[in-house]
């Protein structure tokens, strides 16, 4: 880039490349063993979470047994939803820069899994809300912004699914939409927060006593379980999307040959 000092542009990519190869060497063995590691880890952690949430964790004093839904709800809302959508945004950005259609499959997969977890979050939240708040749904800030998130990413999936798996143009457009949608999240959060919490009809959350250590431990297990589950589901989905892309390419090739 700078014509005056030819040494610096030489040095920079090599250092970056070194870092990249180092990262690749660290990540690649794990990535290659994903079909052994992820199902096993997910299974063990999910079982541990189930046992921990239903049996091991102490009963919450104020809310009773329903509070045990927290171990599903909180990790789904944080890791399952936001982390998936972060992966969608990052994969979309990489796709836009590299034009490698496989990243579009990763973005789609992460968005699908994120939508699944958003539905889980809303469902468990509503089921928890009925006995505690007395209603399934309230227009509380967090609930509302999660709902808006669900709308954005179902729209993304809808727009992407009307085009074929190898439609580069549609993939680029929806990648841009995914980026815009992800950057919209803070704005949605602020606006809905001010819209609701500064409003008179505010829902007052129960002020909880200090959380016991056992609960925190089970919550940690649940976080790990949901993380592994999310990664496994995304890996499954993105691999099947990439398979669909390759199948589609093969069919196009055959169609072309058939016509000639």
């Amino acid at each position: 880039m700078s014509a005056t000092s030819p040494d610096i542009p030489e040095a920079r990519p090599s250092r970056l490349q070194a870092l990249f190869t180092f990262l690749l060497r660290a990540v690649l063995p794990v990535y290659q063993r994903r079909w052994v590691l992820l199902p096993a880890l997910t299974g063990v952690m999910m079982m541990a979470m189930l046992v921990g949430a239903v049996l091991a964790a102490p009963r919450e004093v104020v809310e009773g047994d329903v509070q045990r839904l927290m171990y599903l709800h909180v990790p789904s809302a944080t890791i399952g939803t936001y982390f998936s959508f972060l992966i969608t945004a990052v994969a979309s950005a990489i796709f836009l820069m590299s034009r490698d259609i496989r990243w579009d499959a990763v973005a789609r997969a992460a968005a699908t899994v994120g939508v699944l977890f958003t539905i889980f979050t809303l469902a468990t939240g509503a089921i928890w809300g009925k006995p505690i708040w007395g209603v399934y749904w309230s227009w509380d800030a967090r609930l509302t912004s999660t709902l808006v998130l669900l709308l954005i990413y179902t729209a993304y999936l809808l727009a992407r699914s009307v085009a074929g798996p190898n439609d580069e143009q549609a993939a680029r457009y929806t990648a841009i939409f995914a980026l815009v949608g992800f950057l919209d999240i803070p704005l949605i959060h602020f606006s809905v927060d001010w819209w609701r919490t500064l409003h008179p009809q505010r829902i007052i959350f129960n002020t909880r006593p200090a959380v016991p250590n056992e609960m925190l431990f089970v919550l940690l297990v649940a976080f790990l379980a949901i993380t592994f589950l999310m990664l496994w589901l995304i890996a499954l989905r993105s691999d099947s999307e990439q398979l669909a892309q390759r199948t589609d390419r093969m069919r196009m090739y055959l169609d072309q040959r058939g016509n000639n």
Binding site: V148, L151, I152, A155, Y156, L158, A159, V162, A163, Q169, A170, Y173, F177, V180, G181, D184, L187, I188, F190, S191, V192
Partner: peptide, 21 residues
């Protein structure tokens, strides 16, 4: 939306959730 099919239906579905803030 310009090149995608079903554009006229999809466009509000895409645009309006982003415009909620």
């Amino acid at each position: 939306g310009t090149r995608a099919r079903a554009r006229s239906m999809l466009f509000p579905v895409l645009a309006l959730p982003l415009l909620i803030p």
